[in-house]
């Protein structure tokens, strides 16, 4: 359950190795937390992360195999989770890959991978989690989208499109969940300096996993629908999204 001080007892992180996801856990796992589940493909790497998390937070941390692209398994995955751990109080959807645009251009299978990992897989899982939470009549969902979902650019067109799909799905889910007792927040960070973006030139208004985590924590206490990190990006993108294409291209070059 969620406690009256806004802490969560059972937390699941989809994309259990995600740097931002783990930063969010670092913020959201409190002494009230009893169980954390890391859902990821690489369970060996997950085990190390789990040990570290267990040592720093002193709660039960488990790693459960989950592959976003196995679309037909998500339903069963959630059912098994309920049997093992009971209600999901907080679910964080942080699964995703950046993909390589050149490779995507050359190989349609690479596009399929990105769409499955970032869009279809997470969306199907969100749907399964939301359905469970509807039955529980409580629960919080955090969906990590991106500003890349707002306007497509050449450099990461496939990534942007996959995030746009997820973002739109999450918005729809938000509407579906209205007044159900379940709340969903969409987080749109700008360029996050971290492992995933290593070697890329940083964009303006860039942020860190820790800042994203802080923003997520605050949003969980206040329940807004969409959170931009940093907050100013809301206004920056209000302008960017309506720029004429020739100017947009020059801006993002």
């Amino acid at each position: 359950m969620k406690t009256s001080t806004g802490e969560f007892q059972t937390i699941v992180l989809f994309g259990g190795l995600s740097e931002i996801g783990l930063a969010i856990l670092d913020r959201c796992v409190t002494p009230a937390t009893t169980t954390v589940v890391l859902a990821c493909r690489n369970v060996d790497a997950g085990a190390d992360v789990a040990t570290a998390l267990h040592n720093s937070k002193n709660c039960d941390v488990q790693v459960v195999y989950w592959d976003a692209s196995h679309l037909k398994d998500h339903d069963r995955w959630v059912a098994q989770f309920m049997t093992d751990h009971g209600d999901i109080d907080l679910a964080v959807m942080a699964a995703g890959v950046l993909g390589d645009q050149d490779q995507c251009d050359a190989d349609p299978n690479a596009v399929a991978d990105v769409l499955l990992s970032n869009s279809a897989g997470p969306s199907v899982m969100l749907s399964a989690v939301a359905q469970q939470m509807r039955v529980q009549a409580h629960g919080r969902i955090v969906v990590l989208s991106s500003v890349a979902a707002i306007r497509m650019r050449a450099a990461n067109a496939t990534y942007g499109a996959s995030k746009a799909g997820l973002d739109a799905f999450a918005q729809g889910l938000q509407e579906r969940l209205h007044a159900s007792g379940v709340e969903l927040v969409i987080v749109r960070p700008g360029f996050v300096r971290g492992r995933m973006t290593q070697g890329l030139p940083p964009a303006p208004f860039s942020t860190t996993p820790e800042h994203v985590a802080d923003a997520v924590w605050r949003s969980l206490q206040a329940a807004p629908a969409v959170v931009w990190v940093p907050g100013i990006l809301r206004w920056v993108f209000a302008v960017l999204r309506i720029l004429p294409s020739p100017i947009w291209r020059r801006v993002v070059k």
Binding site: M1, S4, T5, G6, A137, A179
Partner: peptide, 13 residues
């Protein structure tokens, strides 16, 4: 949707 007197965690039932 009800909560306790402290109004902290409303629940639907």
């Amino acid at each position: 949707i009800v909560a306790g007197w402290g109004r902290t965690n409303p629940a639907r039932s």
